[in-house]
């Protein structure tokens, strides 16, 4: 019984940390974009505008929780919940440190992929349930984009599985004790990163919610708490992809020997994650948005063969004993 209670406590802690982190990320993103675009960004609420997210939160909570009468109520409500749930569930398998982590699933990587693939329902169903043109187009874009990129996202991480011989994320991290997998799986990492951006539909692959074309895409009709849930899902998704990149390719909480003792593993892990989050924000500020057909063509014509090639080469090298 104590086990179960301890697990519940752990889950609560992690969620309680993750949600503020996601909220903070909004401020971080806006602030960083401001810096990179040579302007101030939010700087009125609190020191350096730190409390901006809190203010936004309050504003959103105060708004009317409006459900459009022409929508499909059940699905309309369900869609943002699914999105947030899937991302949060994915964190269950992320090993934060040697002792911290909700679940030590032996198919942790598969679980992550499964949750990532389920997350698409959130967007698609939101688009459909809104019963409006822009939302529907956004939902369809999301469906096509996610299904396409999911394929080689799975394929790109198979190189990792090949080299570590496990789906268990904790074992994957431990297998990188003698060197991060980025050394041999840089192609896999690149593909994973691109696919991850597409999966979390961040810029430059944010076509489901492209403001210039679709108003706000799938969440055009959303407001209030449900809108907040979508935002939460998106920023948690960024965090998740960063975390997974770290776990799979950058040794998780591990650091080379001289640095390892400087900080506890959890902090190292968070630092690495933050690095990737910053990278995502940098991407958003610097890259233009492609056309949707370009996006799909890029995925199927460039990324998929590349992923397969990567897998093949990895397998050959693994069999010949080079890796």
């Amino acid at each position: 019984m104590a086990d179960i209670l301890w697990k519940l406590f752990e889950i609560t802690i992690i969620i309680a940390l993750l949600i503020p982190i996601a909220a903070m990320l909004v401020w971080v993103e806006r602030r960083m974009i401001g810096i990179w675009q040579d302007r101030h960004g939010p700087n009125r609420v609190g020191p350096f505008g730190v409390l901006q997210s809190l203010a936004d939160l309050l504003k959103i909570l105060g708004k009317e929780d409006w459900i459009p009468p022409f929508s499909d109520r059940l699905v309309f409500v369900l869609a943002p919940i699914i999105g947030a749930m899937c991302v949060l569930m994915s964190f269950a398998v992320v090993p934060f440190s040697p002792s911290i982590g909700v679940s030590d699933l032996n198919i942790g990587l598969l679980f992550f992929l499964a949750m990532a693939s389920l997350a698409v329902y959130s967007v698609v169903l939101a688009g459909w349930a809104s019963n409006s043109k822009y939302a529907l187009l956004g939902g369809m874009r999301a469906a096509a984009q996610t299904v396409s990129y999911e394929v080689f996202m799975g394929l790109s991480v198979m190189g990792v599985v090949l080299l570590t011989g496990s789906f268990n994320l904790r074992e994957i991290v431990l297998a990188q004790t003698n060197g991060w997998l980025i050394q041999s799986q840089f192609v896999g990492f690149f593909i994973f990163l691109v696919a991850g951006i597409a999966e979390s539909h961040r810029l430059p692959f944010d076509l489901p919610e492209a403001e210039t074309e679709l108003t706000a895409g799938f969440h055009t009709e959303y407001s209030g708490l449900k809108f907040a849930l979508f935002f939460l899902g998106e920023y948690l998704g960024v965090t998740l992809i960063s975390a997974m990149s770290v776990v799979l390719f950058f040794g998780g909480w591990l650091m080379p020997e001289p640095f390892a003792s400087w900080l506890p593993p959890l902090l190292w892990f968070i630092i690495k994650i933050m690095f990737f989050v910053m990278f995502f924000i940098l991407l958003r500020t610097s890259l233009p948005r492609p056309r949707f057909d370009q996006l799909l063509k890029f995925g199927w014509v460039v990324m998929l063969p590349l992923a397969l090639l990567n897998l093949l080469v990895t397998a050959v090298l693994r069999l010949t004993g080079v890796l």
Partner: peptide, 17 residues
């Protein structure tokens, strides 16, 4: 895992699409 990834994640998304 496959059930979720392939079935729920791909095949049914195709349906929805």
């Amino acid at each position: 895992g496959l059930e979720v990834i392939v079935y729920a994640g791909a095949i049914l998304v195709l349906f929805v699409f």
